[in-house]
Design a protein around this nucleic acid. Structure first.
Lengths: 390, 390
DNA sequence: CTAGTTTATAAACGAGCTTAACAAACCCTC
DNA sequence: GAGGGTTTGTTAAGCTCGTTTATAAACTAG
């Protein structure tokens, strides 16, 4: 730790080269004129030239043909861009039913995306692991890459993950999953940094990536299960490892056990519980699912509206203390329930305004199915760049 | 923003000088041999010599008389130490009833500490401001310093403070306080960085300073009012400005308004409310205050024990959602109620264990009355060092 | 008083950035 | 198509800084 040895002129070179690389990255994926880099970095032309030469040599950047540069009435500029293929990263989303893999290049361009379902049930852990290996293989093939070329890897999984070892400590939704050392398994195949992270946390990272600027964000994944991730100034907050587990908040009143490892709030306002509430409230139309309830509420059905309001109130009361302590700029709701639309949003906003000092903006996530995968790729990329600049 | 211009060899000098200063600071307040600095920083002897010369010249360090160095069988070493007086910082704690000021030197040695009471009531804001000016004057006198020598200033005040402007947005406990621009007032007298911060946040910073290492800490101030500060990896979490306002968490059940701006949780388990609960429960001994209730509970009185358990349960239920989201390593309770001792602690621990996945260590703060002042001085010092290394 | 140890000083060297002058390549106008 | 204007690239001199290496200083132990 604290290795800051030998601060001589070579360190300057490293610093400046890193600054140039960062500047190119910020303008990715398009090519950048060297003169532009001079302006942006504040370095002088010879310095930038030297750094670019080094970076091209090392494979980080690629020169563009001067013939193709747009003319602006002077000597044609040299242009460079990130050579994305130089360090692709692999992301994985290991869900209880689905496993997906994606590969992004340095500039966050998607090189491959593969998805595969895996049946649940007994021995699910084993099947999941096999599915993981398969999607990895297919993704590598699709991108035309070997495992050794991968520069970073991040995996999203349900459950609570130990930050240090990467071991999964608690994963009620996948039987046997805690006894699989996923991190170790992957490290056997890849010789790059491997990060295992809770899926809701990665989703939060993906959501934060969509939002401009920094600040505090609470990103809720609301489906059958209920989880959240906290992102502060672009960085994931892990707490002592289990941050964001809002599914285990206990709402007022008695919540019957289900024995499937779900938390009290999940059992009260998870997608399944919402359908149950509607059924008990006598919503016409047989056995509705959560989506049907929200649709009915949107259409004006007063029974459904009461159910939605009840759900929103419970949610707001459950998270209000966390909102008061964390004071996030926004709460973004994703997951299956997020497709509910504005009915739910308005109700949550209304209740939260009543329960907090500084009600955050409550929004629905605009991200589609691949949220966790996107977050995993983002984490892998972030880690990669972080290592570069240290 | 992003000014990183002109990265030439002079930057190296700045970097290395800063590294030397940091190394000296880490060994404060004792003097350090130059040879030791060479070893610690990894720089070479001539470089360290140059940096030390510069720092002595600029007044940051002072040389020690070689005659006084302990002999170790060789040429006597040059030794330097922080010249604390070079940049003292001023801390203020503006409470509703008491105002205190403190001055620390660079090495966090206390140079002055002054306290003064200010009566509440109408026109309290004006009297407070006068008291602030007075304690500042006396502290400066006590330390033998002029206002221009102060290198940093931080103020703790009740209420919610806007991070950008330093304006106080909400302060129910001091009438008229929001219309006083404290930050502006101080900036008129001092030409150093001025930070205004919520008092509970500063207390949290002080508590965090007492704890080794990093991690997530929820520091609760529990007295008549109830507030908290969140410290993550040594840095204060401000959220959008009002983080930690646990007094406004709404516990289950109806909480009558009192119209004095206190939040629902404060009205339920604040010091005054605890006494009220005991009175209503029929605790013998007339009109007890909170301390008496805790004392009776410790002594074995079952009525008092029921009250304490009720209070602890309410507290635990209120903060459990925040604990699940934040997953702090510890909750430290300070303020008047903290003097309750292990009765309260045990009860809170018990209830929290039942309501969270990963129950944090609940502890009592070891800090005395000056918690907020200590935090203010710490914030001012942190800011000062932060500015130096940028 | 000499040997050994620890520390400080000074000069030579090398790496890196900056300045400044100059060259290249292109557009436009006459 | 020749020359001026513009943007960009190239090169060499000069400066700052850290490192290396050799040498001197100051002290203790025996």
């Amino acid at each position: 730790m604290g290795e800051e040895r030998a601060v001589g002129t070579p360190v300057l070179r490293r610093l400046n080269t890193a600054a140039v690389l960062r500047a190119v990255r910020e303008r990715a994926p398009g090519p950048v004129r060297l003169a532009e880099l001079v302006e942006v970095t504040g370095l002088t032309r010879p310095t930038v030239g030297q750094a670019v030469d080094d970076l091209v040599e090392a494979g980080w950047l690629q020169q563009h043909d001067p013939a193709t540069t747009p003319r602006r009435g002077g000597r044609p500029a040299l242009r460079v861009s990130l050579r994305g293929r130089a360090a692709p990263v692999l992301g994985l989303d290991v869900g209880p039913h689905t496993v997906s893999a994606g590969i992004d290049d340095l500039a966050a361009r998607r090189l491959a995306a593969v998805r595969r379902s895996a049946e649940a049930g007994p021995a699910a852990a084993g099947r999941l692991l096999a599915a993981v290996d398969e999607v990895i293989e297919r993704a590598l093939q699709e991108a035309g890459l070997g495992a050794d070329e991968i520069a970073g890897l991040a995996v999203g999984t349900p459950g609570i993950v130990d930050a240090g070892s990467g071991r999964i400590l608690l994963a009620p939704s996948v039987p046997g999953w805690t006894s699989v050392d996923l991190s170790d398994h992957l490290r056997g195949r890849f010789h790059c940094p491997v990060q295992v992270e809770n899926d809701a946390n990665l989703a939060a990272l993906a959501v934060a990536g969509e939002r401009p600027g920094h600040g505090t964000l609470l990103a809720v994944q609301w489906g059958e299960r209920l989880g959240a991730g906290v992102v502060i100034d672009g960085r994931l907050h892990r707490g002592s490892g289990a941050a964001g587990e809002i599914g285990f908040i206990r709402p007022p009143g008695h919540v019957p056990e289900t024995g499937d490892g779900r938390g009290p709030l999940e059992r009260t306002i998870g997608a399944e519980a919402i359908a149950g509430k509607a059924r008990r409230a006598g919503l016409p139309g047989g056995a509705p699912d959560a989506a049907a309830v929200f649709a009915a509420a949107s259409a004006g059905d007063s029974t459904a509206q009461r159910v939605v309001d009840d759900v929103a109130a419970t949610f707001a009361q459950a998270v209000a203390p966390a909102v008061l302590v964390l004071d996030p700029d926004a709460i973004v709701i994703g997951g299956g329930v997020a497709r509910a639309g504005s009915v739910l949003l308005a109700a949550v906003n209304r209740h939260l305004a009543d329960l907090t000092l500084n009600p955050p903006a409550v929004e629905l996530s605009g991200l589609a199915e691949d949220t966790v995968l996107t977050g995993a790729l983002r984490l892998a990329l972030d880690e990669f760049w972080r290592r570069l600049s240290v």
